Amino acid sequence: MSGNGNAAATAEENSPKMRVIRVGTRKSQLARIQTDSVVATLKASYPGLQFEIIAMSTTGDKILDTALSKIGEKSLFTKELEHALEKNEVDLVVHSLKDLPTVLPPGFTIGAICKRENPHDAVVFHPKFVGKTLETLPEKSVVGTSSLRRAAQLQRKFPHLEFRSIRGNLNTRLRKLDEQQEFSAIILATAGLQRMGWHNRVGQILHPEECMYAVGQGALGVEVRAKDQDILDLVGVLHDPETLLRCIAERAFLRHLEGGCSVPVAVHTAMKDGQLYLTGGVWSLDGSDSIQETMQATIHVPAQHEDGPEDDPQLVGITARNIPRGPQLAAQNLGISLANLLLSKGAKNILDVARQLNDAH
């Protein structure tokens, strides 16, 4: 009898209710805020589980004197976190989706994509230029951005401005803007500013005609071990179906173009009346040469937790077992079709030249 009692006690200790789920994140304040929001949602869904947040620095956090596009290494903000995932030191990792490459290392998958916040870019102005827009900034004003995508589009749109690289986390960039006289304004992701509670610093939100956004911008991705079915089931509740389908289309477009950090590629997606609209573009580094096109596809946005595919093969690095396969494939095909259209119009040449120029500098 006593033996059975011990077995029952052991089973209770090993039951999922007692389990601590370890969540990996970057150390920056924004990353911690984003991770806290994901953990809060998981806690609400699984009140019996405990969650421990483990923060670590990544290569991208450490190399702050070089433009991201020049470092010449993929997975700048993800490699150390993936290493911890691989060694079973954490069970899942919360990322900004735009930091996750469209091809993940073997053994990993994006197990959830959370509801997207505003994906557009924002302009934050130096205190002396508050009330201005990019259009009304004085001639030769210097605007800071760490992104080739932003610089290429904005140089084309605002030729009277000069664009220079600015690195560091959000706090560091804002301090550089406010305390030094080098920059009249800087460009940042609206979602990051909003998550930090800095709505009052948003001086201008850039519309798609001015600057399309990065693939996955404004959404959070939760990376897990691809074979860890328990954790895949656990994080599945975080999937937002519309965000998922938009981001599958965007990531398929980028992957098929073979774009990345070192080339200016941008997108804009919208879901309306059962249609998914995808606009994508590529630019030369100075913005003088560009190709942009829009395509659409009829896609039914499923309700969360309709029964999805059981075999769960990944699409552009994403596993969404609780979302039907048909809409996911339709979104992926839309991204591939748009990429093929741009490639047929000469996108590869623009991107190759951009890559060579970026590598040469």
Rank of each mutant, 00 (worst) to 15 (best):
G274N: 01
V282Q: 05
G111P: 01
G221D: 01
S28P: 01
L315W: 10
T172N: 12
N169C: 05
K345Q: 05
V237A: 01
S337F: 01
F77C: 04
G72F: 14
A219K: 01
E52W: 04
I350H: 15
W283K: 01
A249T: 14
K227D: 15
A112W: 01
S290T: 01
G197D: 03
Q153K: 04
L351K: 01
A354E: 13
K43M: 08
D311C: 01
L234Q: 08
E306H: 12
H268N: 15
A40C: 15
E135S: 08
V263L: 12
G48I: 09
G280Y: 01
S28K: 01
G287H: 05
K27N: 14
Q29T: 09
L351M: 14
L315M: 09
R201L: 14
K98H: 01
D65L: 04
I53W: 05
A331C: 13
L315Y: 01
L148R: 09
I63H: 06
H83T: 13
D307W: 15
I205V: 12
T102I: 13
T25M: 07
K115T: 12
S141P: 04
K272E: 08
E210L: 13
S69T: 09
V103P: 11
G72K: 03
T41C: 10
P208R: 12
G197K: 03
Q217M: 01
E242L: 11
S337W: 01
I291E: 13
P302I: 01
I205S: 06
L285T: 10
L351P: 09
R201V: 10
M56H: 12
A84Y: 08
P313D: 03
L334S: 07
R156K: 12
E179H: 09
Q296E: 11
Q275K: 12
T25K: 05
L30N: 01
I323A: 03
R167F: 05
S146F: 10
A214V: 01
L245K: 04
G236R: 13
I33P: 01
A331G: 15
K70N: 15
Y213P: 08
V103M: 11
I323Y: 10
V215E: 08
D312H: 13
G203H: 01
T78R: 01
P47H: 10
I187V: 09
D289Y: 11
S262C: 03
R19S: 08
A84Q: 06
V90W: 04
D311P: 09
H207A: 14
G111K: 04
R22Q: 10
A360M: 01
C247A: 15
T66I: 14
Q204K: 07
R26H: 01
I71H: 08
L357H: 15
D36Y: 10
M295W: 09
S337E: 05
A44P: 06
T59D: 14
I63Q: 06
R321I: 10
D121S: 04
V265L: 05
H239T: 14
T319M: 01
G197H: 01
